[in-house]
Deep mutational scan, measured.
Amino acid sequence: DEDSERELEKLRKNNASKEEIKEVLKRLGFSEDEAKKLAEKAG
């Protein structure tokens, strides 16, 4: 959803580590696997 998109955008701009991105995604309700895949894509 839009909030998670914004959250990811912010992380990308701040050069967050894949680990940080994954944690945020998991907080947003993604499964471990989904979060890992998305973090890879974002990283």
Rank of each mutant, 00 (worst) to 15 (best):
D1H: 14
D1T: 13
D1Q: 14
D1W: 14
E2L: 13
E2I: 14
E2R: 12
E2T: 12
E2Y: 12
E2C: 14
D3A: 11
D3N: 10
D3M: 12
D3V: 12
D3K: 12
D3R: 12
D3P: 08
D3G: 08
S4V: 15
S4K: 13
E5I: 14
E5Y: 14
E5W: 15
E5P: 05
E5R: 12
E5T: 09
E5F: 14
E5V: 13
R6F: 10
R6A: 12
R6L: 09
R6I: 10
E7Q: 09
E7T: 10
E7F: 13
E7H: 07
E7A: 12
L8W: 05
L8P: 01
L8T: 04
L8R: 04
L8F: 06
L8V: 03
L8K: 05
E9W: 00
E9G: 07
E9N: 04
E9S: 04
E9A: 06
K10S: 09
K10R: 14
K10M: 09
K10D: 10
K10G: 08
K10W: 04
K10I: 10
K10Q: 11
K10C: 15
L11N: 05
L11Q: 06
L11Y: 01
L11G: 05
R12F: 10
R12K: 08
R12H: 11
R12T: 11
R12I: 15
K13E: 12
K13I: 07
K13C: 14
K13F: 04
K13A: 10
K13S: 12
K13M: 07
K13Y: 04
K13N: 11
N14S: 13
N14W: 00
N14V: 08
N14Y: 01
N14G: 12
N14Q: 11
N14C: 15
N14R: 14
N15V: 05
N15F: 03
N15D: 08
N15I: 06
N15M: 09
N15G: 15
N15A: 09
A16E: 03
A16D: 03
A16F: 04
A16W: 05
A16G: 06
A16P: 03
A16N: 02
S17P: 05
S17D: 08
S17V: 03
S17G: 06
S17W: 05
S17M: 07
K18Y: 15
K18H: 10
K18R: 10
K18E: 13
K18T: 12
K18I: 15
K18N: 10
E19M: 03
E19L: 05
E19A: 08
E19S: 07
E20A: 09
E20P: 00
E20F: 06
E20Q: 09
E20R: 07
E20Y: 06
E20D: 09
I21S: 01
I21V: 05
I21Q: 01
I21Y: 07
I21R: 01
I21D: 02
K22P: 00
K22Q: 05
K22H: 06
K22F: 15
K22L: 15
K22V: 15
E23V: 01
E23I: 02
E23Y: 00
E23R: 02
E23P: 02
E23Q: 03
V24L: 13
V24C: 14
V24I: 11
V24G: 08
L25R: 03
L25T: 04
K26W: 00
K26A: 10
K26V: 14
K26M: 13
K26L: 10
K26R: 10
K26T: 11
K26H: 08
K26N: 09
R27K: 14
R27G: 14
R27I: 07
R27Q: 12
R27Y: 01
R27E: 10
R27L: 08
L28D: 04
L28N: 02
L28Q: 02
L28I: 03
L28H: 02
G29T: 00
G29V: 00
G29M: 00
G29N: 01
G29P: 00
G29W: 00
G29E: 03
G29R: 00
G29I: 00
F30H: 03
F30Q: 02
F30M: 08
F30E: 02
F30L: 08
F30K: 02
F30N: 03
F30I: 06
S31P: 08
S31T: 11
S31C: 06
S31D: 08
S31E: 07
S31Y: 04
S31Q: 05
S31A: 07
S31F: 03
E32I: 00
E32L: 00
E32V: 00
E32F: 00
E32Q: 01
E32A: 01
D33V: 07
D33K: 02
D33T: 06
D33I: 05
E34T: 07
E34V: 09
E34D: 10
E34R: 01
A35Y: 06
A35D: 02
A35E: 03
A35M: 05
K36V: 13
K36A: 14
K36C: 11
K36N: 15
K36L: 14
K36Y: 04
K37Y: 05
K37D: 11
K37L: 12
K37F: 03
K37G: 08
K37E: 12
K37P: 04
L38R: 06
L38N: 02
L38P: 03
L38D: 04
L38K: 05
L38S: 03
L38G: 04
L38W: 06
A39I: 12
A39H: 02
A39C: 13
A39V: 11
A39T: 08
A39Y: 05
E40S: 05
E40V: 03
E40G: 04
E40R: 01
E40Q: 04
E40K: 01
E40N: 04
E40H: 02
K41C: 13
K41T: 11
K41I: 12
K41L: 13
K41V: 12
A42P: 08
A42G: 09
A42V: 12
A42F: 15
A42D: 11
A42Y: 15
A42T: 12
A42S: 10
G43A: 13
G43W: 15
G43N: 11
G43K: 09
G43E: 11
G43P: 10
G43T: 14
G43L: 13
